[in-house]
Design a protein around this nucleic acid. Structure first.
Lengths: 121, 121
DNA sequence: TGTGGTGTGTAGTAAACACTGGACAGATGC
DNA sequence: GCATCTGTCCAGTGTTTACTACACACCACA
């Protein structure tokens, strides 16, 4: 249905070669072994935890969210954001689950406005 | 600062004794060993995964979200809700992070309305 | 022809997670 | 006195996670 969704490994391999980075160099800068990175790029190993992915994004000068999303690791990335109001956030997410990206963005703007002027003026 | 926040273990022990359930009976119905439950209630073991907690809530006829929140396990509970639009949801959560419960509830209502009539009428 | 640089396959590992079993001590009832 | 029910302590275990080391094969090019 969709245009052949590529997995996390393919994605970083692509970004890495674009940056003309060798696997060893890349692994070294991220702080991982070449073996591990190789296996991840091939899709044999699962993507690393979200914080490692952020480091990867930094080295590759890529968008961290895109990589984290491709890795299916967004939940752990946002864990810290919901822990202050977990119940209300859970309720929100259940209702917002089926919305389109545009609708979610609209809600994001509203949230932004709300935090600018906490009282209703 | 706050009124002596009680941890997950204390909470289920409270609910369990309210329901006049013995530790063994409770553990049995949830499908866990008494040892394990005992340690959790004392706070020696970490709370179990979110799905176990939901089972506990069911047995105790308690609110699952409250227990999951107390366990600090809400992230894994909502993981499935964000995986469809992870990037947009992450962006939302970053902006909504500091809001009050009332404000979040307001946004939840808006989300609810949006899913009722997806087109703007 | 060999030296250096590329990625890869196999095997293993340390630590964390999610538990369990069995022995036990203290109170309760007969 | 003893059986039974309560929760607890200690030690151990299987599984998963997040990796690593080493040996290897391939290619370039001097």
């Amino acid at each position: 249905m969709s245009p052949k969704k590529k997995h996390f490994g393919e994605l970083i391999r692509e970004k890495r070669t674009e940056k003309k980075l060798t696997l060893r160099k890349f692994a070294d800068r991220v702080g991982l072994s070449p073996t591990y990175v190789s296996q991840i790029e091939q899709g044999n190993f699962a993507p690393p935890p979200a914080d490692r992915i952020r480091k990867m994004a930094e080295v590759l000068e890529a968008d961290a969210d895109e990589l984290i999303a491709a890795a299916g690791r967004m939940a752990e990335e946002v864990a810290g954001l919901i822990e202050k109001r977990p119940i209300e956030m859970a309720s929100f997410l259940r209702h917002a689950k089926g919305l389109t990206p545009q609708q979610i963005e609209q809600l994001t703007k509203m949230a932004e406005d709300m935090s600018k002027k906490p009282k209703k003026d």
